[in-house]
């Protein structure tokens, strides 16, 4: 399969200043620390992790809502990191972002029609009357009545708003959609609707997704491959079947064992994690996960594990393998 997006050695360090006015020492939050992955055409890659693991930052780096500290982002063979903002702008047509919060991500002063039409006009995808038609089509596509086009965002429910966000993202016929927890702010019943919509759109338009989530359950339905992130690093990348059947990394094991099972009598081996995710300012030495890992050895405390291929479809960053 052809690669659409290749990410290599991506890093994002946020500087934070500590200390008094006179003895400033600059420390860094290593939000994304040497992350590499790729997305094939038509593929849905899930990016999973706890809050603070750097998954949202990764998404934002891809579409340049943030600038990377280091690393390469190659989209369709073009190195985007070498581009200026103006050079990158045409590429935004191909990479669109769906935001987590459908309430704050829509400008309250723009009607739905205006919000969807703006990128269409701006990138010259359509002009004049065609714009209106296209807005109507897009609203139909995402399951909204085009007659509601002249309304303002506050007149819609959360699920409807997220559909507006999706319509807006689709407006430019993108190739890749980065969806940052698009359903986590929605009720469970609405979550399913929006996930089904995303699934349908992918088949209809041949889209690729980077689907960011903190919930393995949500990712399971949509993603072919899943990357698990912990404290700025990828700990495991695997195809869906093998990840759920046999998670390799101890962290992934903990995550999969936390997925609720409908049958309350089912016997389950829960892997419970101790403690909280450590601060990315002072990450633990060696493997970042070792303080919470039941299999941790001396090697784990000292040596940072790298992501190694264990077979054709999966890689893991753990000294156990």
């Amino acid at each position: 399969m052809e690669k659409l997006l290749e990410v290599a050695g991506l890093k994002k360090y946020f500087p934070i200043r500590k200390g008094s006015l006179f003895s400033r020492e600059t420390k860094y939050v290593r939000a994304v620390d040497d992350v590499s992955f790729d997305i094939h055409k038509g593929e849905v890659l899930g990016l999973v992790g706890e809050s603070g693991s750097g998954k949202t930052t990764t998404g934002r780096l891809l579409v340049r809502l943030l600038k990377a500290t280091e690393g390469d982002i190659v989209f369709e063979g073009k190195d985007t990191q070498a581009m200026t903002d103006a050079q990158f702008r045409p590429l935004r047509r191909d990479m669109q972002f769906i935001f987590q919060d459908p309430y704050s991500s829509l400008n309250p002063r723009l009607t739905v029609a205006h919000a969807i039409a703006e990128p269409i006009r701006l990138h010259g995808v359509a002009t004049g009357k065609e714009v209106e038609e296209r807005v109507g089509d897009l609203m139909n596509t995402v399951g909204l009545n085009p007659r509601m086009a002249s309304r303002y965002p506050h007149e819609f429910s959360g699920g409807q708003r997220q559909r507006i966000g999706i319509a807006r993202a689709l407006a430019l016929n993108p190739k890749l959609i980065i969806a940052d927890e698009p359903v986590s702010a929605l009720d469970v019943s609405i979550q399913a609707q929006v996930l089904n919509l995303l699934h349908r759109l992918r088949d209809e338009f041949g889209l690729s997704y980077l689907f960011i989530a903190h919930d393995l359950n949500v990712v399971q339905h949509l993603c072919e491959r899943i990357a698990v992130m912990y404290l700025g690093k990828l700990v495991e990348v695997a195809d869906r079947e093998s990840l759920y059947a046999e998670p390799l990394h101890p962290y992934t094991q903990a995550l999969t064992s936390a997925i609720p099972v409908p049958n309350p009598r089912a016997k389950r081996d829960r892997v419970l994690l101790k403690g909280e995710i450590p601060s990315p300012v002072n990450p633990p030495s060696g493997c970042h996960f070792h303080p919470r890992c039941q299999f941790a050895t001396e090697q784990c405390r000292q040596v940072v594990p790298t992501l190694k291929k264990v077979n054709a479809t999966r890689s893991v960053a753990c000294h156990l393998y």
Binding site: R92, R93, S104, S105, N107, E118, P119, H123
Partner: peptide
Amino acid sequence: RKEYIETARAKGLAERWVIRSHAIKN
């Protein structure tokens, strides 16, 4: 700081336009 400003940037609007048409009005 609002997310719809990010939305406007993600749409591919130039920063000037983001400020003029999305930020200032709000």
